[in-house]
Design a protein around this nucleic acid. Structure first.
Lengths: 217, 217
DNA sequence: ATTAAAATTTAGACAAATCTAAAAATTTGT
DNA sequence: ACAAATTTTTAGATTTGTCTAAATTTTAAT
């Protein structure tokens, strides 16, 4: 597969082309900063290769093979992002551009070894789940507040530390199961988070954030 | 710079295009498994960009800018090779193909961080020197026997461990300054080496190999 | 020194990926 | 339902990097 083909597949996946819903050429063109006519050309080519279903004038959706391909690319992208942050001290906002390049490196052994080196992470630095080698997404029903993307939001669904002291703290700040939490900013110095619950903003330490589970969407 | 352009520059460097000697289009075509006419086309393009000097019917040589560019690519290639071997347990014969891809990743920060992660290595897994960020080759006058490519040969020029016990060992096996050593094979299990001195073969441990300096060429 | 052989360049073509402009199909508004 | 607006496709052109075949230049041989 060429780099251009891979980028199309990835974009279509992100636009929802995996849900057997048809994605318009216009939407793809806009997302990729290209022209609809270019998308049409590529759509035909990728349909020919059985990577997507193309219905003239309607749009495209990924085939099973297309979804598998997309997941493989996304897996690589996100693993490289983790690598850049954890091993090379990149900040979370610097990684995307480089990962866009690294995701196209062709070597199954390489990405599996990177995965191993990172101890098989489940989320990338933005909190997005990393597909497994078999193309399955890691469970996403709960994740630590400290692992969430910034900015983002989620609903509080549990705690890791169940000590009275911790729960009392939560009570005091009106944090409870079912409450929606907006993560606004992370302080680079100590990883403390500025969050918003209801219409109140507060600053919580990393120790708190690593003990609170939230669920996204 | 495109990937194709970078590959031409790198190949011309390896063919000796840095020594202001003209490299023939034929030689380049053969090395790159392409046609001389393609090389001519690219030569014009790269000369236009001031990366090489092109004399019709004579050949090409790299300009200062071309040499700088070549060294940057070679630096990336060799650093990635070290990374693959030291951090991801690739064997020395598996790294080339992947490094061919990784050398084209565009991010100065990335390669500098990789360099740092590896503690600024001077040689790649094949024993070839890694150019510095400023485009200088590391000194190559001596290197540990354990850092030599396999197979290869060099002349014994020094020892690191100067203990009597070690020197006695060397004497016993007729290893002395000035003797040529052929490295034949490395045992993956314990990194011991099978070497040949004169017309005698022997097996030496990694501990010996990490204490013997040899000079190549 | 002339000619034969080899190397190199030119000219023209092609595939990939893109574009513009025009044509066709679909959607929307009343 | 039908015209207008929007979306999508087609047709033809462009750029990059490559090729083949023919023409040109250089090198080698006698």
């Amino acid at each position: 597969m060429t780099r251009a083909e891979e980028n199309y597949i990835k974009t279509i996946f992100h636009l929802g082309g995996n849900q057997s819903q048809l994605i318009s050429t216009n939407a793809i063109a806009e997302q990729m900063a290209t022209k609809p006519s270019s998308v049409t050309d590529m759509a035909k080519k990728l349909a020919e290769k059985d990577l997507l279903n193309y219905v003239r004038y309607q749009g495209v959706s990924l085939t099973d093979l297309g979804i598998k391909t997309a997941l493989s690319i996304i897996r690589k992208h996100r693993l490289w992002e983790v690598f850049l942050v954890k091993k090379l001290d990149f900040s979370w906002d610097e990684v995307h551009e480089v990962a866009e390049q690294l995701e196209h490196i062709k070597s199954e052994k390489l990405i599996d070894k990177i995965d191993e080196l990172l101890d098989f992470p489940k989320y990338d630095p933005h909190g997005d789940p990393i597909p497994t080698k078999n193309g399955e997404f890691s469970e996403r029903d709960k994740q630590l507040l400290s692992e969430m993307p910034i900015p983002s939001s989620g609903v509080c669904v549990g705690v890791k530390d169940t000590s009275a002291a911790f729960l009392k703290f939560l009570d005091k700040h009106h944090i409870a199961l079912g409450h929606e939490i907006h993560i606004l900013e992370k302080e680079a110095f100590d990883d403390s988070l500025r969050i918003k619950i209801g219409d109140k903003e507060l600053q919580i330490s990393n120790q708190i954030a690593t003990n609170l589970y939230v669920k996204v969407e």
